[in-house]
Amino acid sequence: MKVVTEKNFAYALSENMRIIAALVVRSAVTRFGESRMGFVWVLIEPVAYVSVYLLIHAWMRAGVPFGDSALLFFLTGIFGFRMTRGIARKTERAIISNQPMLTYPLVRPLDTIIATFLTESTIWLIICWLFMGGLSLMMDRSVIVYPADFAEGLLAILYFALSFATFNAMFSALVPRYDTFMNMLSMPLMLASGVFFVPTQLPPEFQAILWWNPFLHCVEWFRTSTYLDYNALLSKQYLLGVSTGLLVIALSVERIFRRKIVAS
């Protein structure tokens, strides 16, 4: 009797794994399209960002905001932000891009989200590893000074990206124009996330406003592990709390409005 229920759950779990694995393969294949340029572009994008900022920086003859290397500062900032945003961006479109898959009753909206999230985070972790490794080779010293903190920060970033993406995916399916609204927010968010400056050097009034931006905490968490004495405006509890809250809301919404979400 006991065996029956256990087998049921194990069976469901194995089915789920199978579906997610299949979806991961599918999204990985379709991620870069037919051409090989897709992957190159993924690599070029951060380089382009960093070099544009370095050029502007050199042109303005500004001092390095923090530390001895402007490259390291911008790269950590861009990775802290772009990684979170990039993963969330692709993942929140998972339901829409996997719409044909949802016609199978076995495939649930959450499966597509998890599958896309897995693919995206793998890609971004590889990119991050490439850049950090390259940077440490270039600067001839270890870039990541607190490996435990770094791992923690990466996990937190992934967790936040997943929650944020799930939340956005649910709401963009339910609320019209939600998608465009979020896209409009993208650039201001980047400016307000401390990619180009050290938030603690701002006046306290600005800090109090910026503190509410969870992306800022992602960036700051990322940076804490690359500088020995970075003075971060970071509240780990806030970031984790926001992520958990978003995830709870998103899962509840998914449960309640499931039919509507699948239909949209």
Binding site: F9, A12, L13, N16, L106, R108, T244, L251, S252, E254
Partner: peptide
């Protein structure tokens, strides 16, 4: 919230037992 997340994850896995 932890319990809710866990519960929903469990439920969504269970959804595949069809």
């Amino acid at each position: 919230s932890l319990w809710v997340i866990g519960y929903f994850v469990f439920r969504s896995v269970k959804d595949h037992a069809i």
